[in-house]
């Protein structure tokens, strides 16, 4: 088993609920994401929230992104901020409630401004990131090469394929400099070849920084399990209206995290069955 240790809490959702009128959508959502340390690696976190359609996954996604306020409960994140000291600049950490803009958000349909070319859209994001001041164009060039979109930098969103749009959305949110990346159904509508590429790309992102945290909301259980370190299952409790987290599965403990050929493992198939049983 790969050695690892768990450190500070990076994100904590506490007693979250969402109610529309008298209809309860989500209730008693409690979970936390903690910093995973692996020797010799910059290991980010990959957490999946899986559940059947209509279970309120997208609603939970919106709560986590700060785009929507919960009816009760809170989501706090640990954020790093540069601070000036007498001897130079250091990074300090602060915990606070999530706000819109804290998270990098990749919507299901990879929405981009239709009136901006890819490069202009990426520049908008890069300019929000103080760490990139003066190096925006270089960063865009690097990401574009890494994600294989150099050829489409001058195109409009309407001229891109679904895969290209997804990569542009991911780069945009990465350029923004957010440690947290929320992805709503990133595997839906992708063919097998593109799906593998996207998984590889997201894993690459998760390894780009120690604090980089990917939260994937998906109903594709197999892919979510194959690339995550932790899976939360969203489901219904008997006799209760609305959805809640019915199971937390620690894939690191089961030896299923960070394995390239994890799908061949027996424990992987058993985990999938276990998740299906919770849905």
């Amino acid at each position: 088993m790969t050695p690892y240790t768990i450190k500070e809490t990076l994100l904590q959702a506490k007693d979250l609920s969402l109610v529309y009128g008298d209809k309860c959508i989500l209730h008693d959502i409690n979970f936390s994401i903690r910093d995973i340390i692996r020797p010799g690696l910059q290991q980010g976190q990959v957490v999946s929230l899986v559940g059947r359609s209509g279970m309120g996954k997208t609603q939970l996604f919106r709560l986590l992104s700060g785009l929507q306020k919960p009816s009760s409960g809170s989501i706090t994140i640990r954020q790093r901020k540069p601070a000036e000291t007498g001897t130079g600049s250091i990074e300090v950490y602060q915990e606070r409630e999530v706000r819109p803009g804290d998270m990098g958000v990749i919507f299901q349909n990879y929405y981009q401004f239709g009136w901006r070319t890819v490069k202009q859209s990426l520049l908008l994001a890069a300019r929000r990131n103080k760490a990139l001041a003066g190096k925006e164009e270089d960063s865009i060039r690097q990401y574009a090469e890494q994600f294989d979109i150099t050829d489409v930098l001058h195109r409009w969103p309407g001229q891109l394929s679904g895969g290209q749009q997804q990569r542009v959305s991911i780069i945009q949110q990465l350029l923004k400099g957010a440690d947290y990346l929320l992805l709503d159904e990133p595997f839906s509508g992708l063919d097998v070849c593109v799906l593998d590429k996207v998984v590889e790309l997201l894993l690459q992102v998760s390894l780009s920084d120690e604090l980089k945290t990917l939260v994937i909301v998906s109903h594709d259980i197999a892919t979510a399990v194959a690339m995550s370190d932790t899976v939360y299952v969203l489901g219904r409790q008997a006799g209760k209206e609305g959805s809640t987290l019915v199971r937390e599965i620690d894939l690191m403990e089961r030896g299923l995290a960070w394995q390239k050929d994890v799908r061949q493992e027996k424990a992987f198939a058993e985990t999938l069955e276990e998740i299906k049983g919770c849905l």
Partner: peptide, 28 residues
Amino acid sequence: AQEFELCQTLGYNRWQSLYEVIVVGKAD
């Protein structure tokens, strides 16, 4: 709503969102 939400995720304040989505985005 997604146009404003994208602005929010990019950390725009309300005036910046108005400028990007309505002034620039709807110029055509």
